[in-house]
Write a protein that binds this DNA or RNA. Structure first.
Lengths: 228, 228
DNA sequence: GGCATTTGCGAACGCCGTTCAGTTTTCCTA
DNA sequence: TAGGAAAACTGAACGGCGTTCGCAAATGCC
């Protein structure tokens, strides 16, 4: 007979504390600083206690990433609902998504970089993929007034998402910001984070503009052909 | 007085052997399988011998990644020269770059994923950034007939590069296993993701088409304004 | 209070990157 | 050619990692 001393609710509370501790460590010192001993020290737990709550450290970082995704997702839902209520144009919806995504990611650069740093071996679990998919759905909803046909919507959303992802990933990895910054403003950029951020946003907005312009041109052409 | 027993050429040869071993291990088992002891075993060296040739394992993986970049760069240079000789259209140049990039990356999925997996903390050294920059330069050269002004060329090249990078990164990260055997056993995908290589290529070509169409539309509009 | 059972702990295991005292090999000199 | 100094090489050792597990402590029912 199992005598319950630690309720399911307690276990969930511990789980949340663990994940929040991981997010704090990532924010401060990056993904590689998330260790079993470090988490235990931060929480005042023993090392073994962690494993009564979650099966592995990798699962902790996965949950931390998922929490990041979820917060962005909620922020986007609210924002999109407001824009819809205000009767904003489709392109405004999409630009807003881009801005929010970049703001969110650059406000927590280490947490967001952690999402990209995950080991590529092995698929993420279905629930994690579903969480990513819900981000994707938001973009699809914003695009659908422009694209019309569902399969066009889906492919366009994927392409645009990937493009933004790439821009951000390169920027966070430090591969893009410095070169772009040096090109835009030939000043010394030792600590020019604000300038780089501005440039990143501008770059993203340009990319969205260009992609949408191309999309409309292609769709107009397709309509022209099917209309004759 | 220093008595040279191991010439600079010997040292370079050892270095190359080391890096090739690392690339082989990455190709077979992924970045995380590159370990000092593993490399030593594969090469028949002692563990310490590695450190007489290179300062850290991280430097080995960096060199392995750089070698990957360089091979792609060389392939692209040859390809672009051939297209130029054949008098191909600018858009053909760009589509060819996209195809070659994707082919290259999906032919060595683990090696290419390793490039994205590098720890985001700390910038790569200047010579590595320069190698990445030379990839950019190729794309810039291909874009310049379309874009005209240098700063437009530069920004467009970065945006397009980031977009392709994002598409590939998402594909490699979420669906590496499927990409690996998609050529052998193409299956129906479940979530609209480009699980199959062909679909990934098609997606990339669409993205390039759309981006170029948007670029031309935007440039035409800008010309119209400046011309009046 | 007795005691089965759950919970919690942290030393221990086998990895990792890196170092370095000790050994072997090499080559110049005498 | 013997001697010896210097370069080259080795692998055990160090601290840190994720994870496990025997054992001590705490718990709730009789």
């Amino acid at each position: 007979m199992a005598r319950a001393k630690r309720s399911a609710a307690d276990l969930e509370a511990m789980r949340r504390r663990l994940i929040e501790a991981a997010r704090a460590i990532i924010a401060e010192h990056g993904l590689s600083a998330v260790t079993a001993r470090g988490l235990a020290a931060k929480l005042g737990w023993s090392v073994g206690a962690i494993y009564t709550v979650i099966p592995s450290i990798d699962a902790v970082t996965l949950e931390a990433n998922a929490a990041e995704l979820e917060e962005l997702c909620e922020a986007l839902e609210v924002q999109q609902a407001e824009l819809t209520a205000a009767g904003a144009a489709p392109s405004a919806h999409i630009h807003a998504i881009g801005s929010a995504y970049l703001n969110f990611a650059t406000a927590r650069p280490r947490n967001w970089a952690a999402i990209f740093e995950r080991d590529a071996e092995g698929e993420p679990p279905p629930w994690y993929q579903a969480r990513q998919a819900s981000l994707f759905t938001i973009l699809e909803r914003a695009l659908s007034p422009i694209t019309g046909a569902p399969h066009v919507t889906r492919r366009s959303a994927r392409a645009l998402w990937a493009a933004l992802h790439g821009l951000l990933a390169l920027s966070l990895a430090g591969h893009l910001a410095r070169v772009a910054d040096a090109a835009a403003a030939p000043k010394v950029d030792i600590s020019g984070a604000p300038a780089a951020l501005e440039d990143l946003h501008q770059h993203a907005q340009e990319l969205i503009d260009t992609y949408l312009a191309g999309l409309e041109a292609r769709l107009a052409k397709a309509r022209g052909i099917s209309a004759q």
